[in-house]
Simulated scan of single mutants.
Amino acid sequence: MRYTRLTDPLVRENGELRETTWEHALDRAAEGFQRNLDKHGPDAFGMLSCSRATNEMNFIGQKFVRSVIGANNVDSCNRT
C-alpha cells in the first residue's frame, strides 16, 4: 500500500471527508477546541509531545496549552 501526503486540509461533513481551505479548517479546529472547553473546562485538554521535537516546538506547544487553553496538562517524553 502506498501512502501519499496530504497537500490540502480535509474536513468531515456528513461522514465524508472533503477538501477545504486552510482558513476554514483552522476555524473548524478552533470551534472544536472552544466547544470542548465550554462543555468540559480546560482540564479536559492535554498535550503530549515527542522527544524528537525541538525545544522551540515544545515551548510553543506548552505556551498554547497554558495561555490559550488555560490548563497545565502538558507532558513529553524528553526525560527518557
Rank of each mutant, 00 (worst) to 15 (best):
A25C: 11
K39A: 15
F64H: 06
S76M: 03
R66E: 09
T54W: 15
N58G: 09
G61T: 02
D75G: 03
L26I: 05
N72V: 09
G46H: 07
Q62C: 11
K39I: 01
S51L: 15
F45K: 06
F59H: 08
K39E: 12
N72G: 15
D43T: 05
V65F: 10
A71S: 15
R28S: 00
N58K: 14
G61E: 06
N55K: 14
L48I: 14
L37V: 06
H40K: 13
Q62Y: 09
F33I: 15
N36S: 12
I60P: 00
F59Q: 05
R52I: 07
M57Y: 05
D75S: 10
L48A: 13
Q62K: 14
I69H: 10
K39L: 14
R35M: 02
D38S: 11
R66Y: 04
S67C: 08
R52W: 06
G32Y: 01
R52P: 00
M47W: 05
D75C: 02
M47R: 12
S49K: 02
G41F: 06
G61I: 01
A30P: 00
S76D: 13
D43L: 02
V74L: 04
N36V: 13
F33M: 13
V68F: 09
L37M: 09
Q34P: 00
E56P: 00
Q62E: 15
P42K: 08
S49R: 02
N72H: 13
K63H: 03
N72E: 11
G46E: 07
A29H: 04
A53R: 10
A25L: 01
D43E: 15
L37C: 07
N72M: 04
L37N: 13
D38I: 05
N55C: 11
G41P: 03
F59D: 06
N36Q: 13
F33D: 01
G70I: 11
R52S: 01
R66M: 11
S49V: 09
S76F: 11
G32V: 00
N55P: 00
N72W: 08
R28A: 05
T54V: 08
V74M: 12
S67Q: 15
A53M: 15
R35N: 08
A53T: 08
S51V: 14
A30W: 11
A53Q: 02
A71C: 07
G61C: 11
A30S: 10
F64N: 03
A25V: 05
R28T: 02
R35Y: 11
V68N: 04
D27S: 07
L48S: 10
R28H: 03
E56A: 15
